[in-house]
């Protein structure tokens, strides 16, 4: 059985906190951070990183190209 696990890396300074990725994430991984970046935006981050499956839905809807997605295939 193969279990896929993923992670995202957010370019915090580019993020404008639009929240479209939070809405697009099927696994409720993402959330806007309570703190802000240098331009005053609540940037997105993995609030529950264990949930991410690397589906890349968040990066697909991001208008500012801030999200990179990684996916690991764990074979048991």
């Amino acid at each position: 059985m193969a279990k896929v696990s993923g992670a995202v890396v957010v370019d915090i300074e580019k993020c404008k906190g639009c929240s479209l990725c939070v809405e697009a994430c099927p696994t409720l991984t993402l959330m806007l951070n309570r703190s802000v970046n240098n331009r005053g935006y609540h940037f997105c981050y993995m609030q529950i990183p264990e949930n991410c499956n690397g589906c890349a839905n968040c990066s697909a809807v991001c208008p500012d190209s801030c999200i990179s997605v990684y996916r690991l295939r764990i074979v048991h």
């Binding site: 404008k16 331009r39 690397g54 500012d64 996916r71």
Partner: peptide
């Protein structure tokens, strides 16, 4: 997470043709 974030596991990153400038558009 550090184990997952490795070049061989990359599934999406912005195109190298997309410049690094921060876009002037409104959020979203």
């Amino acid at each position: 997470i550090n184990e997952i974030i490795a070049p061989e596991n990359l599934v999406y990153a912005k195109s190298p043709l997309t410049n690094d400038d921060i876009m002037h558009y409104c959020p979203g």
